[in-house]
Simulated scan of single mutants.
Amino acid sequence: MIIKLCPQRRDDELVLSKRSDVLTINGERFDFRGVPEGAVLPASAVDCEFVVGDVTRLSGELIITLLLPCGPGATESARFPFDIVSPPDGKVSLPQ
């Protein structure tokens, strides 16, 4: 899995965990195991305001873009985040 982050100035919070290709975003579970190789699931088909880009699977990797809320004191790593590549199952560590 590759999680791309799109920072946006907001005061809310993103809490993210994963298990296989299932993401739990702020307590709500989203199962992407059914996305086949080469397919594109439009962001508009996912009922979650934090999914801001199409969900794809390329070379076996699920690729998803999520909005990353950044407060007024956000660090540079939050304002210019790197992709999260192959995170282990469990809580996903996000830049603050």
Rank of each mutant, 00 (worst) to 15 (best):
M1S: 05
I3P: 14
K4S: 08
C6V: 04
C6G: 13
C6Y: 13
P7H: 15
P7T: 14
R9F: 03
R9K: 10
R10T: 12
R10N: 11
R10P: 12
D11N: 14
D12H: 15
E13A: 02
L14F: 11
V15E: 08
V15Y: 04
V15M: 10
V15L: 09
L16R: 07
S17L: 02
D21S: 01
L23D: 00
I25G: 02
N26V: 12
G27T: 11
G27D: 06
G27P: 05
E28L: 11
E28P: 03
R29M: 13
R29T: 14
R29I: 12
R29Y: 05
R29A: 13
R33C: 06
G34Q: 00
G34N: 02
G34K: 04
V40P: 10
L41R: 15
S44E: 15
S44F: 12
S44T: 15
A45E: 09
V46Y: 00
D47N: 06
E49H: 03
F50K: 09
F50Y: 15
F50P: 08
V51T: 03
V51L: 03
V52T: 09
G53H: 04
D54V: 11
T56E: 08
T56H: 01
R57I: 05
R57M: 05
G60V: 15
E61P: 00
E61I: 00
I63G: 06
L67S: 11
C70M: 10
G73I: 01
G73Q: 04
G73D: 06
A74V: 01
T75S: 15
E76Q: 15
A78E: 10
R79T: 14
F80P: 00
F80A: 00
P81Y: 04
P81N: 11
I84N: 08
I84P: 12
S86T: 02
P87G: 12
D89E: 10
K91S: 06
V92P: 06
V92D: 01
V92E: 04
Q96S: 02
Q96A: 07
Q96I: 00
Q96D: 11
Q96G: 11
